[in-house]
Design a protein around this nucleic acid. Structure first.
Length: 620
RNA sequence: GGUUCCGUAGCUCAGUUGGAUAGAGCAACAGCCUUCUAAGCUGUGGGUCGCGCGUUCGAAUCGCGCCGGAAUCACCA
């Protein structure tokens, strides 16, 4: 409600000045949307002003209401309920807004997000956002997301990560920031050695080509095989009298894997060759999953290329006495002054740990891109890690240390509880995607709505619906919260779902196809004298708010705000669609208005869903 | 045990600078298609906003203390 709120807020200040001869502070002028059950669009809460007016709430509200109606033609009338001054904004104001929006193809979107989801691009035409900031260099955001290990395929947790990261990037772009999407692939370490070892022992030369398996799944199978074998070795050792801990440390398989890691770090040609080969298989698999998910990256970092960098920085830190060495040669940082514990930075054998590598990568990113802000989309299980990382970078004196932001998101749980990869209770990303699309196919066949369309088009629509359902189901939830993934519910197409939103869009498109059939031209401009009904006004209010919702979502790194806003808008539209005719409206001015309104709603819906990475079907 | 996060209808979730009688969807039940797409719309029932105290004209929202759940505190990543 940016514009009108600014107008009203300004005139309330005026009113107070003129009525009571006092200046009030901006935070005393509290405006909000009028609740549904009362007449009005915007409500002024008068309680904070009573100290100034020294009158009753009713009298104060009445004074101000009177002033506003007299001095501002946008305000049509007012009513007072308790301490709430409800203001009715003139319909013509909203109609004017509609005309502005209609002619501004990039309404609410400052810079086109070139994500291939049909976002309207172009310069921002309106003047509702960021006034005065247009000349400044845009801020650069580097957003890291996905960051998989290369020993197994992507699962449901990665899906939330990828969708969140990708969507946040779109939203940031839409508010005019420059964004560099980045992925940090954990391609080295003990985990991949486990897969490699199991493959050497049992693989018999199996390749994706020879087996017809997707590369990441193939490698993942060997990882599972390793874990199984390792566990049975542990059991044997425990049966032989060892403690759990000793058994885990002494099992021959783990020793062999560790030996392999040492060889890798020493650059053993045989091991390197196998490592490259198996990682290549995984990348081909990942690429396919990313493509299906519709996410991509501008820059990919590999841990194997950055891990040494962190080591250098840490060793410098030792020289400068920021860190210290234990007798065994391991390097630590003391975080007790910060209320934390000591944290290891280099192992006693000199090899680097996870956080070492992250220090190096951060520095590398600064050298290459000098971003204003570095966002890490990483699960909340790593909250501690990122807290420590920030403190260490600050200790090291990097001026950009404070530009790190951990976009922490909650776990995805199944109705039965947490996913456990060791017990095979995981939702595989590829399986899930296939299942969603399959359900969309079955649903479409049942409803028969796509009958008669070419097979390819049908398939594409089902893909759009299935993926939309999945993406919406995940993105509508506030990132900070743990969420339950209920497979049955996720493929639901009723209610607050992606399909419901897509359906609304398809309906509007259908109206316009019909209009074309009937020879009804799209209106260019809408009369500003029309009397609006409740539904129409509600929608205009929402559309009017749209740019500020995107700003909020960008500020909070929270796509769910956009999802929920869009849901509210389409719910309103469906009620309107049910209660009123568009093309059959006899009054031409009204018909034109409703067409223009529908067109704008469709556009906002499409743009918003594009920010979530969700495509819109022309029919469904 | 320390730290951080979460707790709203049977279930999944909204509710964001503190504002009016806390909202949706799912599930259940009852209705609405000769019409621009019924993947829709309408209605009914369903709440100690985890509990308590405090701040305030006003608290789901802020503070403190409990209770419950999750994560984390590794020479794993």
């Amino acid at each position: 409600m940016q514009q009108i709120e600014e107008i009203i807020s300004g005139s309330v200040t005026e009113a107070i000045q003129s009525l009571y001869g006092r200046v009030c502070s901006p935070d005393q002028v509290q405006l909000q949307k009028t609740r549904r059950e009362f007449e009005g669009d915007i409500t002024l809460v008068v309680f904070p002003l009573l100290k100034i007016s020294r009158k009753t709430p009713e009298q104060t509200a009445s004074d101000i209401g009177e002033y506003l109606v007299r001095n501002h033609h946008e305000i049509k009338q007012y009513s007072i309920i308790k301490g709430f001054l409800n203001l009715v904004v003139h319909d013509s104001y909203y109609l004017k807004t509609l005309n502005n929006i209609s002619s501004d193809k990039s309404y609410g979107i400052k810079t086109g997000a070139d994500n291939g989801s049909g976002l309207h691009t172009g310069p921002y035409g309106g003047d509702m956002m960021h006034t005065g900031a247009e000349d400044q260099e845009p801020e650069i955001f580097m957003v890291e997301y996905s960051s998989p290990n290369t020993n197994k395929p992507l699962h449901l947790g990665h899906i939330r990560n990828n969708l969140l990261g990708y969507s946040v990037c779109n939203i940031l772009k839409a508010t005019g920031r420059r964004v560099i999407k980045t992925n940090l692939v954990n391609d080295r370490g003990i985990h991949i050695c486990k897969s490699m070892l199991a493959w050497l022992r049992h693989g018999k030369g199996e390749t994706p080509q020879s087996s017809g398996k997707k590369g990441d799944h193939l490698v993942g199978e060997y990882y599972v095989k390793f874990e199984q074998e390792y566990r049975s070795q542990i059991s044997e050792l425990i049966a032989g009298g060892q403690t759990q801990e000793d058994a885990e440390r002494n099992a021959p398989l783990i020793l062999e894997a560790q030996e392999m890691l040492r060889k890798w770090e020493a650059g053993d040609p045989e091991i390197m060759k196998l490592w490259r080969t198996m990682n290549e298989w995984v990348y081909e698999g990942f690429d396919e999953t990313y493509r299906k998910l519709g996410v991509d990256f501008d820059k990919v970092y590999y841990e194997s290329e950055t891990w040494l960098k962190g080591k250098e920085i840490v060793l410098d830190g030792v020289k400068n006495q920021l860190f210290f060495k234990h007798h065994d040669g391991s390097v630590w940082v003391d975080l007790k002054p910060e209320g934390l514990d000591e944290k290891i930075l280099l192992r006693s054998d000199g090899t680097s740990v996870y956080i070492t590598q992250d220090i190096g990568t951060a520095q590398l990113r600064q050298e290459e891109y000098s971003p204003d802000k570095m966002i890490y989309v990483v699960g909340n299980e790593q909250n501690y890690h990122f807290k420590v990382l920030s403190i260490i970078l600050e200790k090291l004196g990097f001026p950009w240390a404070r530009s790190l932001h951990h976009l922490s998101y909650g776990m995805v749980e199944l109705p039965e509880g947490r996913m456990k990869s060791r017990e095979g209770i995981v939702v595989d990303a590829d399986d899930l995607i296939a299942e969603m699309i399959q359900t969309a196919r079955e649903m479409s066949r049942e409803l028969g709505k796509l009958d008669g369309l070419p097979e390819g088009e049908k398939e594409n629509i089902c893909r759009i619906i299935g993926m939309g359902a999945l993406k919406y189901y995940i993105l509508k939830v506030d990132p900070v919260k743990n969420m339950t993934f209920n497979p049955r519910e996720s493929i639901d197409f009723d209610g607050n779902t992606g399909a419901f939103i897509q359906y609304t869009y398809a309906r509007i498109r259908s109206v316009f196809r019909k209009a074309e059939e009937l020879g009804i031209a799209k209106p260019r401009n809408v009369s500003e004298r029309i009397v609006l009904n409740r539904k129409e006004k509600n929608m205009l209010l929402l559309v009017h708010d749209f740019p500020s919702v995107i700003e909020d979502a960008a500020r909070a790194y929270n796509p769910s705000l956009i999802a929920n806003f869009t849901y509210e808008l389409v719910r309103e539209y469906n009620q309107f669609y049910h209660d009123f005719s568009i093309l059959r409206e006899k009054n031409t001015e009204k018909r034109n208005f409703r067409m223009a309104l529908s067109e704008v709603v469709a556009r906002v819906v499409r743009n918003n869903m594009g920010l979530l990475g969700i495509e819109m079907p022309e029919r469904m």
